[in-house]
């Protein structure tokens, strides 16, 4: 059962519509669909919107726009449908991102497999065929939180931090994957390496991904990875539109 959505004030800068107090697939889907609906309303008071894992931030200058009035409008949109049962929006992008699993490029694949109770080959089979969705972007520009992996991947963060993993690293914890935007210290385990670029400020569209996009990470070998050229500004990846 999903709790009813709540609306709260965020300082003087907007309102937060929250669909849960913990990450869940229906709450994330609700936030994705609700944000799309609020964007479509195109209210002049709303300067931007963003979704985090289970909520939607609606940026409004509460110094000049009354919070009650914006809240009433948001409630009206909330009442239109059961957002937890919302369909995923169409027109999203499916990305195929070639990935090297393990090797010196991604040295924690075996450790992660062991924590998950899988042998390394099975771990690679599962990770390279899982189709995951961008649950939210954040922490660094364009950086996706991807999920959800099968329950067996509900593994904790490691106790210590890895000092730095490179740009394009594929890391995992708590049934999620992240592709890192830049070199990052992390408690997540480095299981794969991609040539993907989340963010390229020189590109016409600087951010590759949007919330709701889906990704798969097919396995390639080390030799193929070394030969990868970057056919477009986001690094080696192919994409197709999800109808």
């Amino acid at each position: 059962m999903s709790a009813p959505p709540t609306i709260a004030r965020v300082g003087l800068t907007g309102l937060l519509v929250s669909f849960g107090s913990a990450m869940s697939e229906p709450a994330n889907r609700a936030a994705l669909a609700f944000r799309t609906a609020v964007e479509a309303e195109d209210w002049p008071e709303v300067s931007e919107t963003m979704m985090s894992l289970v909520s939607v931030f609606v940026a409004v200058d509460l110094v000049t726009a009354p919070a009650e009035e914006i809240e009433a409008r948001l409630r009206e949109v909330l009442a239109r449908q059961d957002w937890y049962a919302a369909e995923l929006p169409s027109g999203r992008t499916l990305w195929h991102v070639p990935t090297v699993y393990g090797t010196d490029l991604a040295p924690q694949l075996e450790e992660a497999a062991e924590v998950a109770g899988l042998d390394p080959d099975e771990a690679i089979r599962q990770l390279s065929t899982a189709r995951v969705r961008v649950l939210t972007l954040g922490f660094a520009p364009g950086q996706p939180y991807l999920g959800e992996l099968p329950e067996v991947w509900n593994i904790p963060r490691q106790q210590g931090l890895t000092k730095s993993v490179p740009r394009g690293a594929l890391v995992t914890a708590i049934r999620q994957l992240i592709i890192f935007t830049g070199p990052t210290p992390t408690g997540w385990r480095h299981v794969g390496q991609t040539a993907f670029r989340n963010f390229n400020q020189q590109a016409e569209v600087p951010f590759a991904l949007s919330p709701g996009d889906e990704l798969v990470f097919p396995a390639i070998d080390r030799a193929a990875f070394d030969k990868l050229s970057a056919p477009n500004s986001y690094g080696a990846a192919e994409r197709e539109v999800i109808a």
Binding site: R35, S47, E48, T49, M50, M51, F57, A59, L137, G138, F139, A140, P141, G142, Q143, T181, P206, F207, S210, P211
Partner: peptide
């Protein structure tokens, strides 16, 4: 820069 919150900036 405004307008990039949803992209993590």
């Amino acid at each position: 820069r405004r307008g990039y919150l949803a992209k993590g900036l």
